[in-house]
């Protein structure tokens, strides 16, 4: 464990050095990242101003969409396709004789890119926040913000393990790109990245509130934007931790089974 962490630290440092060559690209990515929620924000504010009867108020909508960019960025994972390729093309073989898991490399890549993206995103977030400062919900005190950070980290772990699970299908299937694409598309709606889950129709509420994707993006943002009661907060946190543990165990099991089934193409 300690040794793995030490290796991880080295790998992250190396990745950061490597990735900072593309710092221009990160700025561009983050610009795109902030644009999409901004368009949604303007649309929903117009609807509200035009008299639409939404179940949430203007402050909720504004805070939600302003913070959405940072939530989708910090909890994102883009490795499923790459990991599946490494399995399919046999790159995994060379890692099996190394003193660290192939997955550790992906963790390092994930952390280092996010580290660089934060620097690009925070100034943009600041500008958007400043523009909408009059209708932002800023929870008093430190508690909710701390929970925001904690749930973001848990959300990031959840997305990452879902990606491991999907990529692990490559042990048995030739082409998982359709699965990866399906995950991205389903996730974008169910996680609340397209429309706040609070605006989903009433009949879907029971499903929407307890499906795993809510805990990848929406839940952390709701903690700051919304008026979740402390019971709802605690239940949410428990459900989120439950999902992290359950998906983590499942991913571990499937990965181990996959390694046993692995036939090392190209060795």
């Amino acid at each position: 464990m300690i040794r793995n962490l030490r290796i991880l630290r080295r790998m992250v440092a190396a990745e950061i050095a490597q990735q900072s060559i593309y710092r221009g690209a990160w700025v561009i990515f983050m610009l795109a990242n902030i644009c999409t929620p901004l368009i949604s924000l303007l649309i929903w504010r117009t609807a509200l101003a035009n008299g639409a009867q939404l179940p949430v108020d203007e402050r909720y909508i504004t805070t939600y969409f302003v913070l959405l960019g940072i939530a989708t960025m910090t909890t994102s994972s883009w490795m499923a396709g790459f990991l599946a390729n490494d399995i399919r093309l046999g790159k995994l073989s060379s890692w099996m004789v190394r003193p660290a898991s192939l997955l550790l490399g992906f963790v390092a890549n994930n952390l280092s890119e996010k580290f660089l993206k934060v620097f690009a995103l925070i100034p943009m977030l600041g500008v958007v926040w400043w523009i909408f400062r009059d209708s932002m919900n800023v929870p008093p005190g430190f508690g909710r913000w701390a929970l925001f950070v904690v749930t973001l980290v848990l959300g990031a772990i959840l997305v990452f393990t879902i990606d491991i699970l999907i990529a692990a299908f490559a042990f048995w299937m030739d082409d998982v790109s359709a699965l990866v694409q399906a995950r991205v598309i389903i996730g974008s709606v169910l996680s609340g990245a397209v429309v706040p889950l609070a605006l989903m129709p009433e009949w879907s509420r029971g499903f929407i509130n307890y499906q795993p994707y809510r805990y990848t993006v929406s839940f952390p943002v709701e903690i700051v934007a919304g008026n979740l009661s402390s019971t709802e907060l605690m239940t949410g946190l428990a459900v989120q931790i439950g999902y992290v543990v359950a998906v983590g165990l499942l991913a571990r099991f499937v990965w181990a089974a996959g390694i046993r089934a692995y036939s090392a193409v190209g060795a």
Binding site: A25, I28, N33, T36, I39, I43
Partner: peptide, 29 residues
């Protein structure tokens, strides 16, 4: 600027605004 490889993404995300009528946006936008 040289390193603008992913600039197409900015185009793709701004063009999304075309899904909605112009009047749905504030006047400066």
């Amino acid at each position: 600027l040289q390193s603008v490889g992913p600039i197409g993404i900015v185009y793709l995300s701004v063009v999304e605004a075309g899904r909605y009528p112009l009047t749905f946006f504030p006047v400066p936008v």
